[in-house]
Structures are given as C-alpha cells and as structure tokens.
Design a protein around this nucleic acid. Sequence first.
DNA 1: GCCGTTTTCGGCCCGACTGTTTTCAGTCG
Length: 624
Amino acid sequence: MTPISNREIAKIFYEISGYLEMQGVAFKPRAYEKAAEVIQGLEQDIRMIYGKGGIKALEQIPGVGVSIAEKIEELLKTGRLKYYRDLRKKVPVDRCSFAGIEGLGPKSIFKLYKKLGIRDLNALEKAVKAGQIRKLEGFGEKSEQNILKGIEFVRKSGGRFVLGFIMPEIREIESRLEKLKEVQKIVVAGSVRRRKETIGDCDILIISTKPEPVMDYFVAMPEVVRVTAHGETKSAVKLKSGLDVDVRIVPEKSYGAALNYFTGSKDHNVALREMALKRGYKLNEYGLFSAKGGSASGGKGSRQIAGKSEQEIYKALGLDYIEPEMRENTGEIELAKNHKLPELINYKELKGDLQTQSSWTDGADSIEELAEAAIAAGLEYIAITDHTKRLAMTGGLDEKRIIEQGKEIDGLNSKLQKTCLAGRQANPKFSAKGRSDSEESSDSMSGSASGGKIQNSKFKILKGTECDILKDGSLDLPDKILEKLDIVGVSVHSHFNLSRRDQTERLKRAMENPNVDILFHPTGRIINRREPYDVDIDEIIKVAKRTGTVLEIDAYPDRLDLKDEHVKKCVEAGVKLSIDSDAHSITHLPYLEYGLAQARRGWATRKDIINAWPLEKMLKFLKK
DNA sequence: GCCGTTTTCGGCCCGACTGTTTTCAGTCG
C-alpha cells in the first residue's frame, strides 16, 4: 500500500459528493465537498495529524466530524474506502469526463445513466447522434447541441493539466530527487519551465555520475502506477494523478544544451539551430559545435564551443540570455540579437494583491487572517474585494454591509499601526521590509505563513469590491458607494452568451464609469471547464487605454485571465495591468506566482504592473 | 454529514436563468 496524500483524500471526497448529489441525497454532498476543500488546503500532512492525535485530532479539522474522520482513518490505514467503492459500483459513471460540459449537472448525468446506460463521453456522443437524448424528459434539441459543443471542448483540452494545480506534486518529486546523494543537479524543463498555463507532461533533467540508483529510486516512487521506460539515461513513468514524467540523466558538459533542448519551445529551438547553422555551427541537445564532422554528438573532429550552460550557448550565438517564459519564437530572438529584451517582472516584485474574497462573502478566511497571510508572504497591501448582492449565493454585499465592512477594515488598519509599534519594540527583526529585500534563494514565492503576526507599519488593507457587471453594463452598487472605495474591481458572472457586440458594449459601459479601476478576469474563461465569453479584446484594450482602466491578470490557476497573448497586446498598447490571486482562502495567496508567470509570458515589466508599485504610486495612478 | 450566542436536534449561502415545460427542475455562481 502506498501512503495516501491530502490531495488524494480530498479528491475521493469530492467524488463521493458528486455521487451523492447524483442520487439526490440532501446536504451530505455539501458536507463532503466542504471537508474536501478544507483537506486540500491543509498545510499539514493529514498523516501527521492522525499520527499525533489519532481520530480525535481528525475531528478537530473544520468540516470533519465523526463519520468523515472514520473514513479518513480507513483511507490512511488501508488506502481504500469501502463506502466510496460501493458508491462507484452503484453508479459506474466516469463523472470527471463530463465536467467540461456546461449545463450537464449531476442530476442529468444520473438520468442519462439510468435511462440509457451512458457511462462515458463516447457513449454520450453516440446517444446524441442517434437522437436518443432529445426523447428523454427534460431534454430537448438545445440540450443535444449543448452536449455536442461540450464534448468538442473537452476533447480539445483533453489530457492537459493546469500548471498551478499539478505544480505542488512536481515540486515534491523534484525535492525528493534532489535529496539523493547521487544527484548533483536537477531542474524541471519543458513547458513547466516555460510556465505554460497547462502542461501535457513533465521532463526532469539530472546531472549524476551514478545514474542507476537515481533511476531505480525514480521508477519505484510510491505514486508511480506504470513504468514505461527504465534505462541509464532515460526513464519514464505514469503517476497516479495521470501525469507522465520523464527523467533524463545528462553529462555535465552538455547540461546547458540539454536544458535548452528540453525546455523548448520547439519553434524557439528550430530558430536557434538555424542561427547556429548560419554561423557555421551545429546545435543539438549535446552542445554547440563547430560544423566539421557532424554526427549526433558533434562528431569526430568537431569541437564543442558551448553547452555547459544555457547562458554560454546564447552568448556564442550572439544573443542575450532569453528567459524560458519568452521562448516561443514570437520575436524574442530578434530582440535578443539587438539587446532589446524587456526586463521581465521578477517573481518577487509584487507589493500587493488587489483581488481577494473574505468570509464576508464566499471566502473562507476573515479579513484579519487574509492580512496576516499577506504580510507573511511579504506583501505591503491587500485589497478586500468581496462580491456584490447580485451574486446571492455568495452572500454578496449590499450598500449597507459594504459600509459595515469598511468600518471593520478601518479598525484593522489602526490596529495594524498600534501592534506594529509594539511589535517593533519587542522584536526589531520583524520590522523587515517586503519580499523584494529578502534573500530567499527560491525563484518562486513560498507563501509560508510562518510568523504571520500583524506587525508591518507599512501594511495597509484597502477597501474594495468585486462589483457585478449587470446585463446592460450597469453596476451592482451605486456610484455614491463606489466612489468611497479604494479599489473598484468589476466583473461578469452572468449572461455569458451575449453576442460579441452586446458583450463588448456591456464591458465598455462598465469601464467608462469613472469609479471603476480594474476589470477583473476580463474574458471569463476557466481552463478545461469554460470557454471565454465572446468579446472583442482589441476593443476592450482600446477602451482601457482611453478610460485609464486597469485590466487584470487573474492568477487563479485555472483562470489565468488575461491570457499571455492578451498581456502582450496590453503591454504594447501601454495599458496597465494588475496581478491578483482571486484568493478565496489564505492558501490561495501563493497563486500570485502563476499570475506573475503569465505576465512574464506576456513580456510585462514592472512598469506595466500597478501592484508591483509602492502603495502611494499605485493609488495615485487609479482613476479619481 | 456537520455544527452549535439557534447547542444534541434541526437547520444547512439562495436568486436568476435556461430550457423545458405549461408550472418547474436543474444548473450556476
């Protein structure tokens, strides 16, 4: 039996919730879903919690009671859960594959199974094409069209993992391999290194003088379900999560060349190889060689000119070093040649987060907890932007409650000032500045919540809103409220199906409101789940420029909205951007990293990102 | 199934929209 992780337990509870919901069971689905959410966000390994305090400690976890605690115990002890197996036997439907079909919820899936025996996407498609679906009660022609559209969408996105969701697993494997004494150097290459929004697989490069034990360890990892290759230079496995991972052992003198080759993109590499040829060289995964000879490794008589590091390869080709996020052959090589590469915003440069939801609406944590976590993450300000009343399900704020919330924020801000002074005297080392001054060696945000006490006098909680844009482009809160807030974000959560013209007009009208600062998640897409709504993005960028509206890069891993190509257009047009976590819990703050990656993929620099600026400058920039 | 300034039972974020109906169930956020 392999040890089971928090993530796997959460996944099982999510599925149980789905099966129960299908059968119309009341309330239990929400209970399992809630437990799953909490377990997924848990900092501590649930095995540790159980190890220390047994089943009683499990019951202390919010959302976990006697019954769910017992189920966790069974999973930890046996790796299996009878209750879950029985549910699956009763309704043997591949629910996950239906997740991308909008409008097809658990009840409908259950009906399709009961009446037509449909268990997967293929059977569903066949039934639609045979005209069987429209005969069912509650279904019609529109449902059929919708299902076909959904199937196409699922197929198109099929099999790719959302980077931010799979990254913790990749980092864990990386850190375990790194600890092996036979591993001298390790790096994850491929689309992971380029920080693509989704990835198909994962390539890990390792320098080692003793490959065998490294490879033996790799293929025997507990999460491996299948070994597809096991050699001295290359091994490949499939993990429980479905992710394919390759490990390649490369010689030290070829490390840079191999890293460059396996990082890609393919188009970027082809362009580099063409450049090399023109200069009388040959570039491959083993190095940059003078062209004489010319077998795969450079050939007899050919001389290696570069290959140990990527830097020396770019230099030898007459190029400045190109960051992995830019390597798509969309103009970066030309810029590198002319020494005109932009200085990309770096991973430690954000000073604030301008979209977070608190427990006033659908967030899990209080404003104070969010502020403490933001301080621990090295930020200097955070905007609380809860939903507004139209989003009734979230308990969206109306005029009265948002004023009350403002009072709470005023109170916390003055408390911040006071505790800061006290804290400083008690422990001067905590008067430290933001993350940009820290000496952390990692190139990503750790988001660790250690020392999360409010004690940074510079830290400020801003009053904000994520105000709903109604169908006609008017807003869910009156101007007299909006004008009192520090940060007015607006966004679409309804009427996704308007025509391009109407949707664009709707957003334009919202952006033209002088109180509106930022358009949140401007296209509304959710990766692998929902297409963006139809909107003329070039027109939106134009209007943003004219009205001084900031466009957001929502950093939530399956939103990443704007896309990289849109970011690039904004940068070119001089439209300012913000990078926001859209956190609904303090555990989401580290997602800012993926927004930063998206910004870098869109060639953004610090001057393009308003929340990389000090608070005063950022506030001054916003519309009055 | 969880939870408790509604505390051991009886509540459980709920309003709008869609496509299917002819008064509403299912889905979404």
